[in-house]
């Protein structure tokens, strides 16, 4: 378990970058998991978010998403998250939210995405 993430880091440097920006790595699981969403989750950085999500797509253990510090999020980012959550669920893999900021929560509700993202149990 300890070796795997390191070797993965070498192969997929992008995920390593994502982890670096995470404030405090909480220890367990693969690197980038939990995936900490940036305060600004918008179209401008959607490509980065997508590659971070893609890297976790087939991750076997539960993937934890941390949306505590999201201050601004737009449709493009929410669309990516929705696709991620749905694809994981279809593959029988689990996703959980660690924390969801108020901004993220209200944006998802406005777009009618609450249940798609399984946000209801978080926040």
């Amino acid at each position: 378990m300890k070796l795997r993430p390191r070797s993965k880091t070498v192969r997929k440097p992008k995920r390593g970058r994502q982890t670096r920006v995470a404030p405090a790595p909480r220890g367990k699981a693969a690197r980038g998991n939990p995936l900490v969403l940036q305060p600004e989750c918008t179209l401008a950085d959607a490509a980065e978010l997508k590659s971070a999500l893609c890297a976790l797509l087939a991750h076997e253990a539960t993937v934890t998403l941390d949306a505590a510090s999201v201050e601004r999020i737009d449709t493009a980012a929410l669309q990516l998250l929705a696709a991620f959550v749905r694809d994981r669920r279809l593959a029988g893999l689990a996703v959980e939210w660690r924390a969801v900021s108020r901004a993220m929560h209200s944006a998802a509700q406005l777009l009618g995405m609450g249940s798609m993202l399984s946000l209801s149990e978080a926040a």
Binding site: L43, L49, K50, L57, A76, Q79, A82, A83
Partner: peptide, 20 residues
């Protein structure tokens, strides 16, 4: 009420395209 039926798989999803 959202309609996400045409949302493609994440890997095929272009972030700047709207499928919702």
């Amino acid at each position: 009420q959202i309609d996400a039926q045409s949302l493609p798989a994440l890997t095929d999803l272009q972030p700047q395209d709207c499928h919702l």
